[in-house]
Amino acid sequence: MRVLRQSMRGRVGAHDYPLEPEAAPAAFRGQVQLDPNRCRGDAACARVCPSGAITVEETSTGWIWQLDDSRCVFCGLCADACANRAVSLSNAFELAVRQPDDMVTRAEFIRNEETD
């Protein structure tokens, strides 16, 4: 409706995207983000991930959280499943990379025995 009103009042040009940055629309599901201060390593996100994009690996000192963008389907189940609200979906959509390895985000956590 907004577009229709715009087009009645004047010309509607093409998007200016490559020349000017353009924000994603509201409620857009973009790249998965992890808040490292909230992550407790319970791997709820990895269990619900339908494509296996998120993996949580236990190590002797803590855990390794890993996201593979090349598998992520941006469904948002990980953000729903996380009890600590550590996982959220950002607005980032410009994810194109030159090296396939760059699509992997890796976070290594060391467990703090005093607080956990």
Binding site: H15, Y17, P18, E22, A24, D69, S70, C72, V73, F74, F93, E94, L95, A96, V97, R98, P100, M103
Partner: peptide
């Protein structure tokens, strides 16, 4: 299991599907 196992991939544009703007970003790369 992906194009990289068949052809030499130069640019990868993840997304399911990627937005048209993301495609333009990939084409710039």
């Amino acid at each position: 299991g992906g194009v990289k196992n068949v052809l030499p991939v130069d640019i990868s544009i993840p997304g399911c599907p990627p937005r048209p703007q993301a495609l333009l970003h990939g084409l710039m790369l």
